[in-house]
Protein backbone atom coordinates (compact mmCIF):
# COMPACT_ATOMS: atom_id res chain seq x y z
CA UNK A 1 0.00 0.00 0.00
CA UNK A 2 2.80 2.39 0.87
CA UNK A 3 4.29 1.59 -2.54
CA UNK A 4 1.07 2.55 -4.34
CA UNK A 5 0.79 5.76 -2.32
CA UNK A 6 4.34 6.91 -2.94
CA UNK A 7 4.65 5.82 -6.56
CA UNK A 8 1.31 7.05 -7.80
CA UNK A 9 0.81 10.01 -5.48
CA UNK A 10 0.50 12.57 -8.28
CA UNK A 11 -2.04 10.46 -10.20
CA UNK A 12 -4.08 9.99 -7.03
CA UNK A 13 -4.07 13.70 -6.20
CA UNK A 14 -5.01 14.54 -9.78
CA UNK A 15 -7.85 12.03 -9.58
CA UNK A 16 -9.02 13.45 -6.28
CA UNK A 17 -9.00 16.91 -7.83
CA UNK A 18 -11.13 15.87 -10.81
CA UNK A 19 -13.53 13.95 -8.56
CA UNK A 20 -14.03 16.98 -6.30
CA UNK A 21 -14.27 19.38 -9.24
CA UNK A 22 -16.87 17.25 -10.98
CA UNK A 23 -18.86 16.79 -7.76
CA UNK A 24 -18.89 20.49 -6.91
CA UNK A 25 -19.85 21.56 -10.44
CA UNK A 26 -22.58 18.95 -10.53
CA UNK A 27 -23.84 19.96 -7.08
CA UNK A 28 -24.16 23.63 -8.02
CA UNK A 29 -25.89 23.02 -11.34
CA UNK A 30 -28.08 20.18 -10.18
CA UNK A 31 -29.31 22.28 -7.24
CA UNK A 32 -30.23 25.11 -9.62
CA UNK A 33 -31.85 22.82 -12.20
CA UNK A 34 -33.46 20.65 -9.53
CA UNK A 35 -34.99 23.66 -7.79
CA UNK A 36 -36.30 24.94 -11.11
CA UNK A 37 -38.09 21.68 -11.86
CA UNK A 38 -39.33 21.46 -8.27
CA UNK A 39 -40.98 24.86 -8.71
CA UNK A 40 -42.44 23.68 -12.06
CA UNK A 41 -44.07 20.88 -10.14
CA UNK A 42 -45.88 23.12 -7.65
CA UNK A 43 -46.93 25.79 -10.16
CA UNK A 44 -50.63 26.37 -10.74
CA UNK A 45 -49.98 25.86 -14.47
CA UNK A 46 -50.82 22.27 -15.42
CA UNK A 47 -48.54 22.14 -18.48
CA UNK A 48 -45.54 23.20 -16.41
CA UNK A 49 -46.37 20.60 -13.78
CA UNK A 50 -46.41 17.90 -16.42
CA UNK A 51 -43.07 19.03 -17.87
CA UNK A 52 -41.56 18.94 -14.39
CA UNK A 53 -42.97 15.49 -13.71
CA UNK A 54 -41.71 14.04 -17.01
CA UNK A 55 -38.19 15.39 -16.49
CA UNK A 56 -37.97 14.03 -12.98
CA UNK A 57 -39.42 10.61 -13.76
CA UNK A 58 -37.25 10.07 -16.83
CA UNK A 59 -33.92 10.86 -15.24
CA UNK A 60 -34.70 9.22 -11.93
CA UNK A 61 -35.47 5.91 -13.60
CA UNK A 62 -32.55 5.53 -16.01
CA UNK A 63 -29.10 4.48 -14.78
CA UNK A 64 -26.56 7.26 -14.37
CA UNK A 65 -24.06 5.26 -16.39
CA UNK A 66 -26.43 5.13 -19.38
CA UNK A 67 -26.97 8.90 -19.19
CA UNK A 68 -23.22 9.57 -18.92
CA UNK A 69 -22.42 7.24 -21.84
CA UNK A 70 -25.12 8.92 -23.88
CA UNK A 71 -23.38 12.27 -23.46
CA UNK A 72 -19.96 10.76 -24.11
CA UNK A 73 -20.85 8.82 -27.22
CA UNK A 74 -23.82 10.41 -28.93
CA UNK A 75 -23.58 14.15 -28.21
CA UNK A 76 -20.09 14.48 -29.82
CA UNK A 77 -21.35 12.68 -32.93
CA UNK A 78 -24.21 15.05 -33.61
CA UNK A 79 -24.13 18.10 -31.38
CA UNK A 80 -20.86 19.29 -29.88
CA UNK A 81 -17.39 18.01 -29.15
CA UNK A 82 -17.30 17.41 -25.42
CA UNK A 83 -14.68 15.39 -23.60
CA UNK A 84 -15.17 12.63 -21.06
CA UNK A 85 -14.95 14.86 -18.02
CA UNK A 86 -17.56 17.25 -19.40
CA UNK A 87 -19.85 14.46 -20.59
CA UNK A 88 -19.63 12.67 -17.26
CA UNK A 89 -20.24 15.84 -15.27
CA UNK A 90 -23.25 16.76 -17.42
CA UNK A 91 -24.66 13.28 -16.91
CA UNK A 92 -24.03 13.53 -13.18
CA UNK A 93 -25.73 16.93 -13.06
CA UNK A 94 -28.85 15.84 -14.90
CA UNK A 95 -29.20 12.60 -12.97
CA UNK A 96 -28.74 14.30 -9.59
CA UNK A 97 -31.00 17.22 -10.48
CA UNK A 98 -33.96 14.85 -10.75
CA UNK A 99 -33.34 13.64 -7.20
CA UNK A 100 -32.84 17.17 -5.91
CA UNK A 101 -36.05 18.27 -7.65
CA UNK A 102 -37.94 15.56 -5.82
CA UNK A 103 -36.38 16.56 -2.48
CA UNK A 104 -36.98 20.28 -2.93
CA UNK A 105 -40.56 19.70 -4.08
CA UNK A 106 -41.24 17.76 -0.89
CA UNK A 107 -39.67 20.64 1.03
CA UNK A 108 -41.84 23.25 -0.70
CA UNK A 109 -44.97 21.21 -0.14
CA UNK A 110 -44.17 20.79 3.54
CA UNK A 111 -44.16 24.57 3.98
CA UNK A 112 -47.60 25.50 5.23
CA UNK A 113 -49.85 26.69 2.41
CA UNK A 114 -51.00 29.52 4.65
CA UNK A 115 -47.56 31.10 4.26
CA UNK A 116 -48.02 31.50 0.54
CA UNK A 117 -51.55 32.82 0.94
CA UNK A 118 -50.51 35.20 3.70
CA UNK A 119 -47.68 36.57 1.60
CA UNK A 120 -49.95 36.98 -1.45
CA UNK A 121 -52.57 38.82 0.60
CA UNK A 122 -49.83 41.17 1.79
CA UNK A 123 -49.33 42.22 -1.80
CA UNK A 124 -46.41 40.01 -2.88
CA UNK A 125 -46.60 38.43 -6.32
CA UNK A 126 -46.51 34.63 -6.65
CA UNK A 127 -42.82 34.71 -7.58
CA UNK A 128 -41.91 37.12 -4.80
CA UNK A 129 -43.69 34.93 -2.25
CA UNK A 130 -41.94 31.87 -3.64
CA UNK A 131 -38.55 33.54 -3.65
CA UNK A 132 -38.65 35.30 -0.27
CA UNK A 133 -41.08 33.29 1.85
CA UNK A 134 -41.49 29.68 0.68
CA UNK A 135 -38.10 28.70 -0.77
CA UNK A 136 -35.97 29.83 2.21
CA UNK A 137 -38.13 27.73 4.54
CA UNK A 138 -38.14 24.79 2.15
CA UNK A 139 -34.35 24.87 1.93
CA UNK A 140 -34.02 24.76 5.69
CA UNK A 141 -35.99 21.52 5.65
CA UNK A 142 -34.09 20.00 2.75
CA UNK A 143 -30.54 20.82 3.84
CA UNK A 144 -29.88 17.38 5.37
CA UNK A 145 -31.17 15.45 2.33
CA UNK A 146 -29.21 17.80 0.06
CA UNK A 147 -26.09 17.05 2.04
CA UNK A 148 -26.71 13.35 1.51
CA UNK A 149 -27.13 14.04 -2.21
CA UNK A 150 -23.67 15.59 -2.22
CA UNK A 151 -22.21 12.46 -0.64
CA UNK A 152 -23.97 10.44 -3.33
CA UNK A 153 -22.56 12.79 -5.94
CA UNK A 154 -19.00 12.18 -4.81
CA UNK A 155 -19.57 8.41 -4.93
CA UNK A 156 -21.47 8.57 -8.22
CA UNK A 157 -18.77 10.69 -9.85
CA UNK A 158 -16.93 7.39 -10.18
CA UNK A 159 -18.86 6.84 -13.45
CA UNK A 160 -16.35 9.26 -14.94
CA UNK A 161 -14.04 6.25 -14.98
CA UNK A 162 -16.17 4.76 -17.78
CA UNK A 163 -15.79 7.83 -19.99
CA UNK A 164 -12.07 8.56 -19.40
CA UNK A 165 -12.86 11.44 -17.06
CA UNK A 166 -9.54 11.30 -15.14
CA UNK A 167 -11.30 11.01 -11.79
CA UNK A 168 -10.15 8.98 -8.79
CA UNK A 169 -11.70 5.74 -10.03
CA UNK A 170 -10.20 6.16 -13.51
CA UNK A 171 -6.77 6.68 -11.95
CA UNK A 172 -7.43 3.69 -9.70
CA UNK A 173 -8.10 1.43 -12.70
CA UNK A 174 -5.00 2.74 -14.39
CA UNK A 175 -2.83 2.27 -11.28
CA UNK A 176 -4.23 -1.21 -10.68
CA UNK A 177 -3.23 -2.31 -14.18
CA UNK A 178 0.16 -0.59 -14.07
CA UNK A 179 1.21 -1.86 -10.65
CA UNK A 180 -0.63 -5.19 -11.09
CA UNK A 181 -1.38 -4.91 -7.38
CA UNK A 182 -5.13 -4.81 -7.79
CA UNK A 183 -6.38 -5.05 -4.23
CA UNK A 184 -4.00 -2.55 -2.69
CA UNK A 185 -4.60 -0.07 -5.50
CA UNK A 186 -8.34 -0.16 -4.89
CA UNK A 187 -7.88 -0.04 -1.11
CA UNK A 188 -5.90 3.18 -1.54
CA UNK A 189 -8.55 4.58 -3.87
CA UNK A 190 -11.21 3.62 -1.30
CA UNK A 191 -9.32 5.51 1.41
CA UNK A 192 -9.22 8.58 -0.80
CA UNK A 193 -12.99 8.43 -1.26
CA UNK A 194 -13.53 7.93 2.47
CA UNK A 195 -11.44 11.00 3.24
CA UNK A 196 -14.10 13.04 1.44
CA UNK A 197 -17.28 11.13 2.19
CA UNK A 198 -16.87 9.98 5.82
CA UNK A 199 -16.41 13.43 7.40
CA UNK A 200 -19.28 14.74 5.26
CA UNK A 201 -21.46 11.86 6.32
CA UNK A 202 -20.72 12.34 10.05
CA UNK A 203 -21.25 16.05 9.70
CA UNK A 204 -24.65 15.45 8.08
CA UNK A 205 -25.65 13.08 10.91
CA UNK A 206 -24.64 15.73 13.41
CA UNK A 207 -26.57 18.40 11.51
CA UNK A 208 -29.69 16.24 11.30
CA UNK A 209 -29.59 15.65 15.05
CA UNK A 210 -29.17 19.36 15.71
CA UNK A 211 -32.00 20.33 13.39
CA UNK A 212 -34.26 17.68 14.89
CA UNK A 213 -33.89 19.11 18.41
Amino acid sequence: MAYILTHYWSELIQGLGYTLLSSVIALVFSTVIGTMFAIFEVLPNRAMRIIGRIYIEIFRNIPLLVIAMFFYVIIPMYVAKIDGFTAGTIGLTIYTSSFIAETVRAGIQSVDNGQMEGARSNGLTYWQAMRYIVLPQAFKIVIPPLGNQFINLVKNSSVLAFVAGFDLMYQGNSIASLSLDTINSYVVVGLFYLVITLPLSYYMQHLEKRLAN
Binding site: Y72, V73, I74, P76, M77, K81, D83, G84, F162, A164, Y170, N173, S174
Partner: peptide, 18 residues
Amino acid sequence: VLELSDYAQAMTALKSGQ
Protein backbone atom coordinates in the same frame (compact mmCIF):
# COMPACT_ATOMS: atom_id res chain seq x y z
CA VAL B 1 -3.80 9.05 -23.56
CA LEU B 2 -7.46 8.32 -22.82
CA GLU B 3 -8.02 4.83 -21.44
CA LEU B 4 -11.35 3.11 -22.05
CA SER B 5 -12.50 -0.13 -20.51
CA ASP B 6 -12.51 -2.29 -23.65
CA TYR B 7 -12.00 -2.18 -27.43
CA ALA B 8 -15.69 -1.76 -28.23
CA GLN B 9 -15.79 1.32 -25.99
CA ALA B 10 -12.53 2.64 -27.45
CA MET B 11 -13.82 2.24 -31.03
CA THR B 12 -17.07 3.98 -30.10
CA ALA B 13 -15.04 6.80 -28.54
CA LEU B 14 -12.95 7.11 -31.73
CA LYS B 15 -16.14 7.49 -33.75
CA SER B 16 -17.37 10.12 -31.32
CA GLY B 17 -14.18 12.06 -31.97
CA GLN B 18 -12.93 11.71 -28.41
